[in-house]
């Protein structure tokens, strides 16, 4: 940064008489106004983004929850203005919906844990073991697939897990199945396992990135000190590395957990549509029923869980590591 400051044209912009030769009078007047009234400066900076978020986003969320309290006209299948708690009661007590939601939470949790388990050794190797000249290249290689696009990668997993024969895609070709079936002779096929694997694949870089950043900030001397005090690698990991990395892991988990929890497109590609795997599919099909109020009522589940999760992660220090 230093050299840029030196390069910058004369900062003073004043002539010998001490009169500024910078911007025109109105602009200067404005900046003086802000200096005198700091609150005005704050207000003009903060209100556009905060109003946008509050009015458009929070406002929409509130409207969504309100819309869950309107009854559906059975004939036109359009929401009426008649107040009812039936939708909310149904969404919160429907057993199969709750079971599906729990399954979705479990899938999101498994995805998050798997991402942590893969990201920890990988980012440790890149940050602390790989030679310095390799680090940047390795990190770029981890992050590059992020750019390939959600649809592209989801579609790629369809090509990976397609089972041999029996399915319409393999049948069109020579029937050898997808990459896994023909190269490894084993494939999870179109199943829940494929959903988990593909979700891990999609969100893994979001976990590696904060953990790597956390490890980079972690002084190597700290690890040496633990070793000098007689800690074995596992003990160093448990008592030194892991506690210091918790905020980073929390930051990464916001992405892996939330993005997995809401997914409903991916199951359509890597599961062949007979049963619902993710809660989002239920919301989507309810909306298409069409029963907008009930769909809105169903969103209360993920809404509650994610907001609670975000508060927990905020306490874990995740927001300073995003």
């Amino acid at each position: 940064m230093g050299e840029r400051l030196v390069d910058a044209p004369s900062l003073s912009g004043t002539d010998t008489a001490g009169r500024a030769s910078g911007p025109s009078q109105p602009v200067r007047g404005l900046s003086r106004l802000f200096r005198r009234h700091r609150r005005l400066g704050l207000l003009s900076l903060l209100s556009p983004p905060v109003l946008w978020m509050l009015v458009i986003y929070i406002g929409s969320l509130v409207l969504l929850v309100i819309s869950a309290f309107f009854a559906l006209d059975p004939k036109s299948q359009k929401p009426t203005t008649e107040f009812t708690t039936a939708n909310i009661t149904d969404a919160l007590s429907n057993e199969s919906a709750i079971r599906l939601f729990l399954q979705t939470v479990v899938i999101a949790a498994i995805v998050t844990i798997s991402c942590v388990l893969i990201a920890l050794p990988t980012s440790f190797f890149i940050a602390k073991i790989a030679p310095r000249w390799m680090r940047r290249g390795l990190m770029v290689s981890i992050l590059l697939p992020l750019w390939a696009g959600y649809m592209v990668k989801t579609y790629a997993w369809r090509a990976m897990v397609a089972p041999a024969g029996g399915n319409k895609f393999a049948a069109e070709g020579r029937g050898g199945g997808g990459f896994l079936a023909s190269q490894l002779g084993w494939t999870p096929g179109f199943s829940k396992t494929s959903v988990v694997i593909a979700l891990v694949y999609l969100w893994l870089p979001y976990m590696v990135l904060p953990i790597y950043a956390g490890l980079e900030r972690l002084p190597t001397s700290l690890l040496d000190a633990a070793g000098d005090l007689g800690a074995r690698p596992m003990r160093t990991f448990r008592s030194v590395i892991f506690p210091l990395l918790l905020p980073s892991i929390a930051a990464g988990s916001i992405f892996t957990f939330s993005l997995s929890l809401g997914d409903y497109i991916l199951p359509r590609l890597v599961v062949d549509g007979k049963e619902r795997v993710m809660f989002g599919e239920l919301i989507n099909s309810t909306l298409g029923a069409p029963n907008q109020p009930l769909a809105a009522a169903f969103t209360v589940w993920p809404l509650l869980v994610i907001v609670m999760y975000l508060f927990a992660m905020k306490r874990a220090g995740a927001f300073d590591n995003l």
């Binding site: 983004p49 905060v50 978020m53 509050l54 458009i56 986003y57 929070i58 406002g59 929409s60 969320l61 409207l63 969504l64 819309s67 916001i254 939330s258 993005l259 929890l261 809401g262 997914d263 409903y264 989002g280 919301i283 989507n284 909306l287 907008q292 769909a295 809105a296 969103t299 993920p302 809404l303 994610i306 907001v307 975000l310 905020k314 927001f319 995003l322």
Partner: peptide
């Protein structure tokens, strides 16, 4: 910062449904 991160942290289907409704 909580307000800013909310649209990306909440499931897309919730955000989508909310905005569609509005």
């Amino acid at each position: 910062s909580f307000l800013m991160v909310l649209p990306i942290a909440l499931p897309g289907i919730v955000t989508g449904l909310a905005l569609q409704n509005t």
